[in-house]
């Protein structure tokens, strides 16, 4: 208890100090809100020079996939590592997987009432179309692959809640398929990144060499697929009913 008070007091002191620095001294420089030189450089160079254009009137996408393309590429790998970490914790051996499937087949198929299901169907169609438009117009309007993938993951979560996981699995959305789709998304990204080297003799991620907006469009679509199915994979793995997983796992511990 005494430690809690100590932590709270020291954080409060730090907070007061930072408040003083931000308001009176204006260390963040937000009072006048000038455009910083770096931001001005990106705004004025992203689409201006014909030879050096990033093919994207949206400056954020130009930064994300063109100026700082390697940053985003490695962010994709960080995402990959997080998904793989989650999956490796939730992994099952072949016998355990078969046991889980046998137990799941005997589970009753519960879903919510008609009103919830109909509303979910309507909302899911809207979310999917919105996310597709965010992803495919990512280089023209606000948005891109990351945001579209997150929106799409929300749509699948809604489906999980209103219908059950088993309904989706009966329709063919199994773990094997989602992992394959995730790999496809990553393959699209890697192919687009390598394409300038193989086709035009440029450097890795030099997507200006590809004709028109192909590079940005491919990267956005690849990121959209990767993020959507990466999340969906973990949701499916987490969606195994609690008691089945416990039953299978506790045996392993003993």
């Amino acid at each position: 208890m005494k430690k809690d008070v100590f932590v709270a007091l020291s954080l409060l002191t730090a907070f007061l100090f930072i408040s003083y620095a931000v308001t009176v001294r204006d260390v963040l420089g937000i009072a006048e809100n000038p455009l910083r030189p770096l931001g001005e450089f990106y705004l004025s160079h992203a689409f201006a020079h014909e030879g050096l254009t990033s093919h994207s009137p949206e400056v954020v996408t130009a930064i994300v996939w063109n100026y700082r393309g390697f940053d985003t590429l490695f962010e994709t790998f960080v995402f990959f590592l997080a998904i793989m970490g989650a999956l490796s914790v939730l992994r099952l051996t072949r016998e355990q997987g078969m046991e889980v499937r046998a137990l799941e087949a005997r589970e009753p198929h519960r879903h919510m009432d008609t009103i919830t299901r109909t509303t979910t169907k309507l909302v899911v169609v809207m979310i999917v179309s919105i996310s597709a438009s965010i992803a495919l117009h990512g280089h023209l309007t606000p948005g891109g692959g990351f945001q579209a993938g997150s929106a799409m993951a929300v749509a699948t979560l809604l489906l999980f809640a209103a219908f059950s996981k088993f309904t989706l699995e009966r329709q063919g959305l199994t773990l094997r398929h989602t992992i394959s789709a995730y790999a496809l998304g990553l393959a699209i990204i890697l192919a687009t990144v390598i394409a300038p080297v193989l086709l035009y003799g440029g450097k890795v991620l030099e997507i200006d060499l590809l004709p028109g907006e192909t590079g940005l469009f491919n990267l956005d679509v690849g990121e959209y697929t990767a993020v959507t199915f990466g999340f969906l994979t973990v949701f499916l793995a987490l969606g195994v009913p609690e008691w089945i997983f416990k039953l299978v796992l506790r045996r392993e511990v003993k």
Partner: peptide
């Protein structure tokens, strides 16, 4: 922030 949000979600 764009990438930080998604990485935050993955974490």
């Amino acid at each position: 922030v764009l990438t930080a949000v998604v990485i935050g979600m993955a974490m």
